[in-house]
Amino acid sequence: MRFNKYIALVMLMILSSTALFAQKDTIAEKREARKLVREGNNLYKQQKYTDASVSYKKALEKNSKYKKASYNLGNALYQEKLYKEAVPQYELMSKSAKTKFEKAEAFHNIGNAMMEQKQYQPAVDAYKNSLRNNPNDDETRYNLAVAQKLLEKEKNKDKDKNKDKNNKDNKDKKNKDDKQKDKNKDKKEGDNKDKKDKKDGDGNKDPNKDKKKNDKKNKQKPKPKQGKMSPQQIKQLLESLKNEEKKTQKKMNVKKSKGKKVKQEKDW
């Protein structure tokens, strides 16, 4: 029994020592974290925001629940224009804050970071949360008014954009329908023409049929060549020439008789 009591006493002393050392380590880490935050603050004042961010991150490695380190890290990231990375640090502060003033400050900075990213709806929500915790903050109230105005402008712009898109879609649809109507009309006219041609071939008189037939007949009939006379015309021409020749010969004979001296018998 005494041996068991001795063992239990030794175990208790070991556990107590371990807890004591752990507590000392925790205190040491907290002190180191505070030291790192002070270094970060000095760098921040010198506008060395990147170096300040490194110090704050090291402080959080020593003490992850060190809310001041989170908040200051958010501010340093904000100054580096790393707005997206700054927001989670402010959110940690808003959740761990013990006073309404601290919550209001965290939400205010969330709103500012969202405004820089042109995310106006989240900015409006953040400023409203800040005013719920600190209704007397005029700066937050002013920022809220600006964010609401920009949000309304954005919505109107999107509305106009959607309206233009709908008008364009309707116009494209109308043009498509008109093209389809024209296509259907052409197809219908083509079908009607095919039906008419087929009907004409089945027995209806084709108005061009007789003309084509006559043209074909005329084409087959031999035409007299230009300048060639018919036998009748040649016969008439020969007779006319013969008659002319007779007249000419008769005139020549008369002309000869007038020109020749006629002998007269002498009266002795």
Rank of each mutant, 00 (worst) to 15 (best):
A76D: 03
K176V: 14
L43E: 06
D197C: 02
Y56K: 03
Q23F: 01
Q117P: 04
D182R: 15
Q23A: 01
T140R: 01
V37L: 04
E189C: 06
V262I: 09
K205F: 09
T26Q: 14
T140K: 01
Q232F: 11
K65Y: 13
S55N: 14
L82W: 05
A28V: 08
R2V: 15
Q249N: 15
F3T: 06
K168T: 08
G201V: 15
N75H: 03
A22Y: 01
N136M: 12
V87A: 02
E239L: 11
K188D: 11
V262T: 07
A113E: 02
S64D: 08
K155L: 00
L60H: 04
Y142E: 11
A106V: 03
K250C: 09
Q148T: 02
Q236I: 11
A123R: 00
Y90L: 03
K168M: 09
R2A: 15
N109R: 09
N175Q: 15
L82C: 06
P231A: 06
K95R: 12
N162D: 14
S64L: 10
T140C: 13
F101K: 14
N133F: 12
N72I: 08
D169I: 14
Y83D: 12
L82H: 10
M1T: 09
K261N: 07
D267Y: 06
N253E: 13
S230C: 00
E154M: 04
K199Q: 15
A147S: 00
E29R: 10
D160Y: 10
L238T: 09
T26K: 13
K67M: 08
Q180H: 11
E32R: 14
P122F: 00
K260F: 02
K161F: 12
D125A: 00
T140G: 04
K103H: 03
L151T: 00
L9W: 15
G259Y: 04
Q23E: 04
E85K: 03
E244G: 14
D200Y: 09
K228I: 12
K57V: 07
